[in-house]
Design a binder for these strands. Sequence first.
DNA 1: CAGTGGTCTAGACCACTCT
DNA 2: GAGTGGTCTAGACCACTGA
Lengths: 253, 253
Amino acid sequence: MANDEPVWPDELFHDLDRAGPVPLYFQVSRRLEAAIQSGQIPSGARLENEIEIGRRLGLSRPTIRRAIQEVVDKGLLVRRRGIGTQVVQGQVTRQVELTSLYEDLRSTQHDPATQVLTHDVRPATDDVAEHLGIPVGSPVLYMRRLRSTDGIPVAVMENYLPEGLTDISRAQLEEQGLYQILRSRGVTIRVAKQRIGARSEHGDEAELLDVDRGSPLLTMQRTAYDAAGSAVEFGTHCYRPDMYSFETTLVAK
Amino acid sequence: MANDEPVWPDELFHDLDRAGPVPLYFQVSRRLEAAIQSGQIPSGARLENEIEIGRRLGLSRPTIRRAIQEVVDKGLLVRRRGIGTQVVQGQVTRQVELTSLYEDLRSTQHDPATQVLTHDVRPATDDVAEHLGIPVGSPVLYMRRLRSTDGIPVAVMENYLPEGLTDISRAQLEEQGLYQILRSRGVTIRVAKQRIGARSEHGDEAELLDVDRGSPLLTMQRTAYDAAGSAVEFGTHCYRPDMYSFETTLVAK
DNA sequence: CAGTGGTCTAGACCACTCT
DNA sequence: GAGTGGTCTAGACCACTGA
């Protein structure tokens, strides 16, 4: 083989900010990721070894390892002991992240709009209480929203928020994603558990989503927890399967 | 507060194997995870700090940090700077992992069975060729299988394997999961990209899965890559939504 | 203020792969 | 045997939290 020489675009890393708040490993991993996504480091290319990268960047090996590991976890690189680190072959897809549908859609250049169908405070049912970890009958904010993109309905979303968050206004929900509102109130979501399934349309969903009666819908049920481990949101959503699907990249450990 | 004392069950970690091939951080993380899953470390409990844990176990802080990080990544623990490490509140769910349906079912104590409906070598169509990254018309092994558990049909699975793996026998497929077979042939899957959606039943699926005509089905399309980054499997599966769903735990970065 | 996790360093030894 | 990533150590300084 003539072309098995390792690749490392030094020039991308010559202005790392050692003083600022952004960790070095993160600065390196983001630039590395961008270089792969843009094709600057081509599919299948072998990277320079960790020690040499560290030497060139003036960083220790653990820092370089952590940067590379971040990119490996996103499925863009593969490491093999005794061999080296390679860019994965094949097309690159987007990762499922801890964001709301609104942000998913917005980040993909669409124009999301929200219509609030229902918005009230009601006592928690058994099911809702269990998911939120609160007593049955506690007041919860219930909202039912219709999300559209480019004028086409995409999803009907039902959400429940526990006491302390029940004062979110209808107007606010029309304008921002739920997770945006929560963040602006200082609520940070750390962990979310979701279950994805399918079922038939029922009730008024056919009309709202502009599909035939009895059409298949993609469903997602999610409970989100804040840093302290308390549930801050429980929701059941249903999506038009021709308008939305879930993508994941799985990486073996 | 009287009961804010940090928790650490020393006794679980007194027989770590420092000589064997299993990394120390992994031994620690697995026992820690088990202790949480079993309730031995209760929901909401605060863990001892990293330095102290390291001292008690005779391990360095980076090793302890890595062990804890593994459990954080699984969504069982939450870390907060200045505060400490806490067990997440709420029920524990299973993680989506890089395993086949067969292993999913088997690990949950069911009794999976496989019926091979079709099994032949054929030229790759445009679609299959693109997903596998091979030329159109290349020979690929096509298989269509019906998976059941406890006698109830769960999924119809269509899979395509590239040249070099086209000699997997029908008999073998009846007995083992596809990923098991691949592993036994030295093929290790490192990365998989999957898309989950929904659609209506069509063709003979209603009969195979014992559902009504036009019923909703949960669908999954997956391409799996080996350590070198080559695609080793492409498949489109459809599931009875009352028998199967996908669970994920998402952790904010 | 003391205590916590977050980051980083400069080494070391090992297991694995290829030649 | 040479080169690679995998693991581990023993420190260091910082940023953030809560009292």
